[in-house]
């Protein structure tokens, strides 16, 4: 992951994007792919490139669940919020994850070491209940298993 992006880097990154061609979301996605999040500076630069206001750009950033406004944590558990998981104890898993990590959904520890995120169903429902640990599916999960994963991610084994 790159460090805090500079204004010059950001300008170069979004130089080809045009608002009139539907490029706001693709530009935001590219920024996030490069830096892991969309910084306030990126919002300013993109607004200028798109010849629109930072408010409009921030409006999109805050509307879509996928955009982050701070650097992502080093390790992350994404909890699957889908119905098949819910029917198999997914909500008890959420409760246990939140308490073990000491975090609500969509937040991270102050030092950025670990985080917890709400994940959307992608149709791997044969694995329910599942979470993604650093992007990898862990399925057929028990609550006890989730607690163990959360302790590992948190660093207290």
């Amino acid at each position: 992951m790159a460090a805090e992006p500079t204004t010059r880097e950001l300008r170069e990154l979004v130089a080809e994007y045009e608002f009139e061609r539907g490029h706001l979301l693709p530009a935001l996605i590219e920024i996030q792919e490069r830096y892991g999040y969309v910084s306030p500076a990126a919002i300013e630069v993109l607004a200028r490139q798109m010849r629109t206001t930072p408010a409009l750009v921030y409006g999109a950033v805050s509307f879509y669940a996928d955009f982050r406004t701070e650097p992502p944590p080093e390790r992350e558990i994404a909890w699957c919020s889908g119905p098949a998981c819910r029917l198999r104890g997914g909500d008890r898993i959420r409760e246990a994850l939140q308490h073990t990590l000491g975090l609500p959904l969509d937040s991270q520890s102050e030092d950025g070491a670990y985080g917890l995120r709400l994940g959307q169903c992608n149709g791997t429902c044969s694995e329910a209940p599942q979470v993604w640990v650093d992007g990898e599916v862990v399925g057929d999960l028990t609550v006890a298993g989730a607690v163990a994963i959360a302790r590992d991610v948190k660093g207290d084994a």
């Binding site: 608002f19 539907g22 490029h23 706001l24 979301l25 693709p26 935001l28 996605i29 798109m50 409009l56 409006g59 999109a60 509307f63 879509y64 669940a65 996928d66 955009f67 959307q120």
Partner: peptide
Amino acid sequence: FVGAGSYVCGEETGLINSIDGYR
């Protein structure tokens, strides 16, 4: 065109706004 996480974008006019560059 890749979405960024929003259920109402499955509604056709929400989806159109999304491509257009709005919420």
